[in-house]
Nucleic acid binder design. Structure first.
Lengths: 250, 250
DNA sequence: CTAGAACCGTGTACAACGTACACTGAGTGT
DNA sequence: ACACTCAGTGTACGTTGTACACGGTTCTAG
């Protein structure tokens, strides 16, 4: 993305859109395009999210969308920020309750919009809704006497855990949508795979499977979040915090 | 994916490929196709990973690949499992050291092959290399007296955290590859964005930025992993473990 | 030995996708 | 009234995965 594209994306996300002073009345608008795209992605998944499909949702043609968003990548940025706008800001209060709130807001958002976790990659331009939510999460940690980079790291750890669980969840949702087969039925219906799960080759898995460890799984989000918060508590409440080396350069 | 496609994918990953008994000597092989694809993805990123590009790497044509892998999705499954084959199995020993080893193996793998975190989504068929590594990780936890589903949850938490950090890392690597601009230079060079980061709108971010919280970031993997392991330690070593409700149905 | 089958690689074509460009018509500013 | 701006649409193109047909190579069965 060139500098000029970056600046344009910033204006697109952060500044009010200029109102046209001439020309025909627009049947579409950026907000309508974004909402239609979110509706399509929510209902049909990330692979259905094409410019043609969105335009169809609006009773229009694909090229008309380009009057309102410069491109698909920018549309995705707008969608992500719009969805962040549906979440609440983390309220002031104890750091743990705050981070839990933040994580739950993210989780709810991802559950409602799993496509967010499946977007084409590379750097997305952050928008105001996402940034203000992140800002509020930093705020509940900032009063703990941590160094600034520790504040960032604490919030980042929570977010990255939720992202990881969310990705798994999103992939499951998509698989079920595509195949009409639930996660459980998929594993139960793949006998050819289980034939290869032998005690010689996979001793722990066969033991765990035989013991019901996969039949009644714990809630991954709940279990993992509690552990992450416990670990952060040990860090936050320690008298003498362990030094962590700086990020290595990639 | 239909049942028959599933069975085929299982055979592809888990069973030795039948040797042809007739016909011309093949210039290509499945292993060569997989290795060429890994090489392309490592060097040029996930977007460059097209059948045409892989074929070009082999001095062949795209359609010839289909003699050796049934489709691109199956090629991706094979690639992922091949790369897992480069990692070491978690050795027997203390649970914490074991999980740390597992996490580091994953991290090294993702650092060498960031495309793994960026594959088209939906359910991937697990292969023998990935499964045996997971099996070994379960093994270091299994002797702790946890319930089977707790064993699964403990290992899953670590893996999902690493996946979350890895995704962020992969996106950065890709962005830098595409733009030739480093993460740091990107943020520093996007003045138009910083103009919107004001104390009124983003008080914590501007404070953290001004305090150097973003200049010298802590290593996200190291910091987060330590916290996750601390949290798991509290769980594993607790006398009376908190009950976690079961996974909700999606 | 021969015909047929199995198998390999290639050429061609197609559906689908994002989007550049040109055109037409609607509405405004001078 | 005219020039300009702006919205929507039609057309076309490059790119991607892959179906299908063809020609050639090698082996097996009769």
């Amino acid at each position: 993305m060139k500098q000029s594209d970056r600046d344009r994306s910033v204006r697109l996300l952060w500044e009010p859109q200029p109102e046209p002073t001439r020309g025909p009345r627009a049947a579409l608008s950026q907000a309508r395009v974004v909402q239609a795209a979110i509706k399509v992605a929510d209902a049909e998944g990330v692979d259905a999210l094409t410019m043609r499909r969105v335009a169809e949702e609006l009773g229009s043609t694909a090229m008309s969308l380009y009057r309102h968003v410069p491109g698909k990548s920018e549309l995705l940025d707008l969608m992500v920020d719009a969805v962040w706008g549906e979440t609440e800001h983390t309220p002031e209060g104890p750091w743990r309750a705050g981070l839990e709130f933040f994580a739950r807001q993210m989780w709810s958002m991802y559950r409602a919009h799993p496509w967010m976790l499946q977007l084409t990659t590379s750097r997305r331009m952050p928008g105001p809704q996402a940034m203000t939510r992140q800002d509020a999460a930093y705020a509940v940690v900032a009063g703990l006497g941590l160094r600034p980079e520790e504040v960032v790291a604490v919030v980042t750890t929570v977010a990255q855990f939720v992202d990881g669980v969310g990705r798994t969840m999103a992939d499951r949702v998509q698989a079920e949508r595509e195949t009409g087969v639930s996660e459980e039925d998929w594993w139960n219906g793949t006998e050819s795979l289980w034939e290869h799960f032998t005690p010689e080759r996979l001793p722990m898995m066969t033991y765990l499977y035989g013991s019901g460890g996969f039949d009644r799984p714990l809630d991954e989000f709940e279990f993992g979040l509690a552990r992450v918060l416990d670990g952060l508590a040990a860090f936050v409440e320690a008298e003498d915090r362990p030094a962590v080396r700086r990020s290595t350069c990639l």
